[in-house]
Design a protein around this nucleic acid. Structure first.
Lengths: 111, 111
DNA sequence: GCAATAGTTAAGTAAATGCTTCAGTGTTGA
DNA sequence: TCAACACTGAAGCATTTACTTAACTATTGC
């Protein structure tokens, strides 16, 4: 489910913006309201809400509104999906290098 | 070096585009020339070169030109840096959840 | 030498992005 | 009840992005 390309697209796109990464960073230390997320950022609350909506659409953040405050938290599954994508590619490359190394070592032995 | 925010910015931005992720995916299976990278993509070679330049600027891909062909390969260190950023945030969150779980279990025991 | 190959560069353009301000809505506490 | 609070949504705008085409350079193989 989390591996469908469209969702992956939204996630990486969400992580591409420094303000949004800062928000994720803040949320990694615990839940926060929209205003709390906005506080360290040099932009209007409205802008923060727009970023937050993107983060939520990407699945990286989940929010729930109680009364007038919207509380946000990280969705670790989504983070794991992004992590996983990168990890698979890196591992593929590194395993390839290993096999190449083995091959070279082996052909060296044969001399 | 690889943890400076500007570089991280470039990397996540580079990964945000599906065409560029496809290029990284291709490169995870081994080095390729610009034309080889372009082949499965529905866009001009020129567009591919522009994507490639971004990937190189981000540090995710290293290229070297021999004669008239530019050969590209993945830079696993950069991938690891992106992976690491995500992993740290996710772990921070999950450890927090664990501590919270422990706390709740403990306060439950006391009843 | 010269045509084909492999890539590069510049200029232009349409669409997307990251804001802003302003005018709301619903909630809460005194 | 009513002002302050916590957000929300729409419109507008400047910038950036993801392309395109077209003209170009440098290599290679015959």
């Amino acid at each position: 489910m989390l591996h469908d390309p469209a969702q992956l697209d939204l996630m990486f796109q969400a992580l591409a913006d420094p303000a949004r990464r800062q928000m994720v960073d803040r949320l990694s230390r615990g839940p926060a309201s929209v205003s709390q997320l906005a506080e360290p950022l040099a932009m209007s609350l409205s802008a923060v809400v727009q970023h937050l909506n993107l983060l939520e659409a990407s699945g990286l953040v989940r929010t729930q509104k109680v009364g007038r405050v919207r509380t946000c938290q990280i969705e670790p599954k989504a983070l794991r999906a992004a992590e996983h994508w990168i990890n698979e590619r890196r591992l593929a490359w590194e395993l390839r290098l290993d096999r190449l190394g083995d091959f070279l070592a082996q052909t060296n032995d044969e001399n």
